[in-house]
Design a protein around this nucleic acid. Structure first.
Length: 774
DNA sequence: GTAGGGTTAG
């Protein structure tokens, strides 16, 4: 333990051993506090107070009935409380411990909470009594800064105070440890509580259940639970909640049955936890059963319970039940309205959602967020951006982190770099805290909008880097084809002792696959389970199949599929099929597409790829019959669509598009481009014509009218030479377009960034970053 | 001479 830190804290060494262990276990917080030069929180908290000596008088006993004291509980705002405080200093009442404690708990605990003010009062108290200590520890435990509870607790057991923690103190301190998710601290406090013979206090034990469950130690929590001699309803609830939130819904339900068997009457909280369990399990039937149970038992707390019920129905997919309940709810609050709004929006009932939104009594930021994120998550990023724009214009609510995260994700999807940058500036201007979540969104947005340098800049300057931030950056490097940088970053991530998760590996394997780093990829895949403890999932196998397939090892890819411990999803065969296209392997392609169509009969990608493969081998009859089969099944393919942003406006093009205001200019430019390219030897790729006929349209010139060509032509006429042309395409880019883009970059001296469904192509001076390997 | 543990939207 650092003696400097001890000095900061002002502690004495002559402490009991358990207290010392406690101190040691929270030393990391002290280090943090001591290194925070600007925030004075721990310092002010821990500087010895200047205490005015208390002179007891025999009038003390009258103070509890003093009119000023009675006023405290009647005051309705902090200002009044402060006036009372002033008066109490004047008349000396403040120097009576009891009177001061009433005032402090009013500041610390009432709905007018101002913990900092309460703490200042506490510091001025001549002799804070145990009640006051507890009030403050409690207030901090549920505040934004639970560490302060621990600091107070230390002061309490170390300082020259005449108070000793009692059975009230421990639950608060344990709560603080739970809030901090700090297992070591909680365990030490647990030990101290036992030593102080509070080890069988049901309040202490219940808070311990909550603590262990919060830290993910459900088994420890359950051991504590089993050890409680006389369990009350809170004991059961704490354990049920622990199971419900720890993804052990079945155990939660099982425990509920046991609880009923023991004759303990469930209450509102029990039912709330059960609903959490149903919602996690997405089990509508059990949800309905809980609903009837609530009605049958006449459990109170209608508003909260009804809100949770509506949420359960929404999440379990019964919008009708949710709506029915919502309509007949006697009381509704903003949560009820928002939950229902999310229900409409997430299930794609956008008209209902908008109508509901407009009839809401109050449209707070959460309501806006519900709309924005629902649009963004259901693949309607443009609508999400429109709502965000509406929010900005209307000025009806202030965007918060959730708003920005959702909007950034929408920007990433459509490739709206200008708006994304604008949000980044907004964050800086409003000094919004760059949480890990926000950093992840920014890195993702910049990567997907093609500005990898900006993504790297955000990444390296971020203070907050969790596994999601690192994974997003690895994904960014992967999609831009910087495989070896991705691997380097993965190494750095481990040096920072951040543990990779399944997503990290998906991105890492993807990086290896895009760059052709076969040996590295194989290595990582092999190490996943034994070294990193992550069981490879379907996505990882899909990456490996893709990687092996690209390298031409189709047989090995096939045998890997056969060893998969889980049924392969369509993506696995899709990867194989893509590889067959690259290497022109008809035989394996036929098998792969057959399997793919078994899994997803309407996967047009399978038809398109297979027909491309036939075309490449000149098997035109097969192409024709495949086309007929597609028609028979009634398959319409997703239309190819490209977009690019000019001055903050996103322009969209579909194949053969002539709806654009500058359509004539665009086609004029396109003709000029083809003249120029032909003069230097460009020849349209015939196999690609067929691909296009399948892919985009049934017309002969379809090839020239591909959406990405239109978008690039528009870029040529509307952007300056210094601005790269950033085109986002929803499907894979075809070989002809890829070739044309390369030639344009050379002839017109332009930088072209082409994002397709899978990755980025950085095209400059006739060369593409993908090395024609995609 | 005051009190305490478990809960729901985005």
């Amino acid at each position: 333990m650092n003696s400097k830190i001890l000095k900061v804290v002002g502690l004495r060494y002559s402490s009991s051993s358990s207290a010392y262990i406690f101190l040691a276990s929270i030393h990391v917080y002290y280090i943090k506090a001591a290194t925070m030069a600007t925030t004075s929180i721990p310092i002010t908290t821990l500087t010895p107070h200047h205490r005015i000596p208390h002179i007891p008088t025999n009038k003390d006993r009258y103070f509890s009935n003093h009119p000023t004291i009675l006023l405290i509980n009647q005051s309705s705002n902090p200002k009044q409380l402060k006036q009372i405080h002033a008066q109490m200093i004047r008349n000396g009442l403040f120097y009576d411990p009891f009177s001061a404690s009433v005032l402090i708990s009013a500041f610390a605990l009432s709905n007018l909470q101002d913990v900092k003010y309460a703490h200042k009062l506490f510091d001025q108290m001549p002799q804070p009594n145990l009640y006051t200590w507890n009030a403050l520890i409690r207030a901090y435990s549920s505040s934004k800064d639970p560490v302060q509870s621990l600091f107070m607790f230390i002061q309490m057991i170390h300082g020259c105070n005449e108070v000793v923690p009692n059975k009230f103190t421990y639950p608060f301190v344990i709560k603080a440890a739970a809030e901090l998710l700090d297992r070591r601290v909680g365990e030490v406090v647990h030990g101290m509580a036992v030593k102080m013979s509070f080890g069988s206090d049901v309040f202490v034990l219940n808070s311990l259940i909550h603590f262990y469950a919060s830290c993910g130690c459900l088994d420890s929590a359950y051991r504590v639970f089993l050890n409680i001699q006389v369990k009350d309803v809170v004991s059961w609830n704490s354990m049920i909640t622990g199971f419900a939130q720890g993804d052990r819904a079945d155990d939660a339900l099982q425990l509920f049955h046991e609880m009923q068997g023991e004759g303990v009457r469930p209450d509102e909280v029990t039912m709330m936890s059960l609903l959490t369990a149903c919602t996690k399990k997405l089990d509508l039937e059990i949800g309905r059963w809980v609903h009837s149970n609530i009605e049958k038992n006449g459990i109170k707390g209608r508003l909260n319970l009804n809100n949770a019920l509506v949420d359960m129905y929404v999440k379990c997919g019964s919008l009708e039940d949710a709506q029915k309940l919502f309509v007949k709810m006697p009381e509704k609050d903003i949560v009820s309205w928002t939950t229902m709004l999310v229900g409409y929006a997430k299930s794609g009932h956008f008209i209902n959602a908008k109508r509901h939104f407009e009839s809401m009594p109050k449209q707070d930021i959460a309501a806006w967020n519900a709309l924005i994120s629902a649009y963004e998550q259901t693949g309607n990023p443009k609508e999400a951006l429109a709502i965000f724009n509406e929010l900005q214009v209307s000025n009806k609510a202030e965007p918060d982190t959730v708003t920005l995260v959702s909007t950034l994700s929408a920007c990433a999807q459509v490739g709206a770099l200008d708006l994304g940058c604008w949000i980044h500036v907004y964050i800086k201007k409003h000094k919004i805290n760059l949480s890990c979540h926000l950093v992840t969104s920014l890195v993702d947005m910049y990567s997907k909008c093609g500005d990898l340098n900006k993504a790297l800049e955000v990444f390296s300057s971020a203070d907050c880097k969790d596994v999601f931030v690192w994974s997003a950056m690895i994904a960014g490097l992967a999609m831009h084809g910087n495989g070896s940088d991705a691997i380097e970053l993965f190494k750095k991530m481990q040096e920072s002792s951040i543990r990779p998760n399944g997503v990290t590996f998906t991105n890492l394997l993807c990086a290896c696959s895009h760059t052709g780093l076969l040996q590295e990829g194989r290595d990582f895949f092999k190490k996943m389970k034994p070294v990193y403890g992550i069981t490879p999932g379907v996505k990882h196998y899909a990456c490996m199949v893709d990687m092996l397939g690209r390298a031409g090892l189709l047989e090995e890819a096939l045998s890997l599929i056969k060893t998969m411990p889980m049924p392969p999803l369509a993506s696995v065969y899709g990867a194989l099929l893509g590889a067959c296209k690259l290497h022109g392997n008809v035989e394996v392609a036929e098998e792969a597409s057959a399997r793919l169509l078994e899994l997803e009969p309407s996967n047009h990608g399978a038809y398109v790829l297979l027909s491309n493969i036939y075309a490449k081998s000149g098997m035109w009859d097969k192409v024709a019959s495949l086309r007929k089969r597609m028609k028979d099944v009634g398959l319409k393919k997703e239309p190819g669509c490209s977009s690019l942003e000019v001055n903050g406006v996103v322009h969209e093009f579909v194949v053969g598009d002539n709806t654009h205001a500058q359509s004539k200019l665009i086609y004029g430019k396109l003709n000029e481009v083809f003249e120029k390219l032909k003069s230097i030897g460009y020849e349209p790729n015939r196999s690609q014509v067929l691909q296009c006929v399948e892919e985009e349209d049934m017309q002969e010139q379809a090839l020239h009218l591909h959406s990405e060509k239109l978008a690039i032509a528009f870029g040529l006429i509307s952007l300056t030479k210094s601005q790269p042309i950033r085109v986002m395409k929803n499907l894979r880019v075809c070989e002809d377009c890829h070739n044309v883009a390369k030639m344009i970059s050379k002839v017109y001296d332009r930088e072209i960034l082409l994002r397709d469904r899978y990755r980025f192509h950085h095209i400059k001076a006739g060369v593409c970053s993908c090395k024609d390997y995609w």
